[in-house]
Amino acid sequence: MNSRRIAIGLLVWGGLVMGTAGQGALAAEGDSRPALSAEAAEALARAESSVAQATARKALWTTATSALAQAQEAARKADNAAVMEYAAVASEQASRGMAQLDSPLTNQQH
């Protein structure tokens, strides 16, 4: 009896977790403000600003653009871990692009 209750409990719990997560994702789609952790939101904002800076300096890499798009997509699904992961790549690739502007010119014939 007791174990059956546990079993039912587990099923309900599993369903609940799913339902909540599902709702979160749904809410994220309908709502303009997804349920992101403060940490993930901050990482995303930092990535967006780095990419904007690199764009302004005409030094943006396509890898930064696509990582930012992935981070934004993850944010819509409120997937904090993925937001952190992709936002970090976007920021890093954007700053590498800007640093490249200071690298010496190559193969000059004089």
């Binding site: 890499w61 590498r96 692009g97 490249q100 690298s103 010119l105 190559t106």
Partner: peptide, 14 residues
């Protein structure tokens, strides 16, 4: 023409 660009780090001149 001589400036490196992109993740692959090529200039046109490379």
């Amino acid at each position: 023409f001589y400036q490196r660009r992109g993740q692959l780090n090529f200039s046109c001149a490379s």
